[in-house]
Design a protein around this nucleic acid. Structure first.
Lengths: 218, 218
DNA sequence: AGCGAAGAAATTGTATACAATACATGAACA
DNA sequence: TGTTCATGTATTGTATACAATTTCTTCGCT
């Protein structure tokens, strides 16, 4: 395996730590502490922090330190509503450019999703979920669209995990499987309007579930 | 004036240099060279590079260096088409939340735009143009939407300049003034559909002008 | 006790030396 | 002549020492 730069390692480890809640929202993380923890100097840590900040996972305050992001419910909703708009657009373009092989490709993704769900592999499930949502954008042939969708998707994952006290694989994930199939069906039929609507329904349903689940504790 | 961090200075200077074409597309910029040029060590330069990369102005290749972005025509079009989708959404939300003062505010912006145009202050013109396009997003009350619009807008500005061999204040800018007024008018009348359409027309017209202008030389 | 200032401690910001890596150059060889 | 491999050079990557800045603490004053 190719040797990775420490900067890259630091980035991945911190991100993972945030996702797995080893680092809590609003927690302060100092360069010094992390450099001891990861057994490297502060230099690559600083670089990694920069990148994590640009992705919204950390907030850097000059001369103060790095703080793990702590998204509000409103922000979570904001992201999902923006995703609706952008992913609908991606669907439009995807259907314009699609071929029969793409349908097969999408079917494969859904199959992998099911497998991940059944083997309760939470991380794999998240990864495949991202791939599914990025799939139309991949066909769109619009680089920026893909980029934006991946960005927002990543945020969603992170926020989703951060906001939930006891995140494992909840029932909600089971629900998203038939919803993804509905999207696939519309895609197969090249039905733009249907596909857009299914995407909207799915995203808003996920958002609803999140709000609901949260309200148990609040 | 508060003393700025060198990292901040480096960021601003490089960005400006790219915008003013002191640095050409695809040009390689080494940390060493810039550190001598800006009379600071490589450390703050590296930080600045990271940020410029995340904004798409530079491409960083590990162990190779930093390269000034060189967007293709296709990418320019991609960005503008994505902006259409997102700014339309912003307009919808803006009209939901708007008050009478907001109309006054928008009028002020257009007045400032005209002033900048008449005094041929190109940089001011670009700045105000960005403010105008971000204005609906500001009213939208969706943080991410605003962020995305500002990002794409900044890209557009940069690409717009990079792609044009002899950029000053061309006639196209004059055209955008009445188009902005059409948007304002729809906004004043709280006419969502009209406002969305005017935004779309304006963005696509800008894109057309860019493609056309370019084709003179190609 | 409350307030303010001065200094101490903690932490990021910067400079610099050195290591690791990628690319270019050129020699050896077929 | 063309190809491969070793070596050299340029440039980024990393560690570390030190400077600058912010925050915390403590002490003195009212």
């Amino acid at each position: 395996m190719k040797k990775k730069r420490n900067e890259e390692l630091a980035y991945e480890k911190v991100k993972r730590a945030i996702m797995l809640k080893k680092l809590n929202p609003d927690q302060r993380v100092t360069e010094e502490w992390l450099s001891q923890e990861l057994k490297m100097s502060r230099t690559p840590i600083r670089s990694a922090f920069k990148r994590l900040e640009s992705e919204g996972l950390l907030t850097l305050i000059p001369h103060r330190g790095a703080f793990v992001c702590n998204p509000s419910d409103k922000e979570l909703e904001d992201v999902f509503r923006l995703r609706v708009v952008i992913e609908r657009y991606a669907a439009e373009l995807a259907i314009e450019n699609m071929t029969d092989e793409d349908v097969v490709e999408m079917e494969k993704l859904l199959k992998r999703e099911l497998e991940a769900y059944e083997s309760k592999d939470f991380e794999a499930f998240l990864t495949i979920n991202s791939l599914i949502h990025a799939f139309p954008a991949k066909l769109s042939n619009n680089t920026f669209l893909l980029q934006e969708i991946e960005r927002l998707n990543q945020w969603s994952d992170c926020y989703l995990i951060l906001k939930d006290e006891f995140y494992t694989i909840p029932t909600e994930e089971a629900k998203s499987i038939p919803e993804h199939h509905a999207i696939l069906e519309a895609f197969r039929n090249r039905d733009v309007d249907k596909m857009c609507d299914e995407i909207e329904t799915h995203l808003l349903s996920t958002l609803d579930d999140l709000s609901e689940r949260k309200s148990i504790f609040s």
